[in-house]
Amino acid sequence: MGDQRIKNIILEIISVVAPDAEITDVKADVRLRDQLDLDSMDFLDIVMELRKRYKIEIPKEEYPELATLDSCAAYLGPKLAAVPA
C-alpha cells in the first residue's frame, strides 16, 4: 500500500476518533498530537481503529511509531502490505 494511501487512512481514522479536529492541512513531519490536540484516549482509539479495520496489532512499546503521518506510513507500510489495495 502506498505512503499516501496510508496517510489518508490515518486521517480518515482521526476524523472518526476526533470529528471536531481540523484535518485539512496536517503536516506530515510534525507530531500529530502537537497539531491536532489528541489526548492519550484518542491515541488508544487510533490504534484500536487500525485493529478493528485491518486486524493489525500494535504493541504498546511501538505506539511512538505513530507520532507523525510520515512515521505512520513507514511503520504501517509492511503491516498493511498484506491488505488488498
Binding site: V16, V17, A18, D20, D37, D39, M41, D42, D45
Partner: peptide, 16 residues
C-alpha cells in the same frame, strides 16, 4: 461547541 479536553467532548468522541 469549540471547547476540547473536558469530560463532555471527551466522552462524545469516545462514544462516536
Amino acid at each position: 461547541p469549540g471547547v476540547r479536553g473536558t469530560p463532555l467532548p471527551k466522552l462524545l468522541r469516545q462514544l462516536r
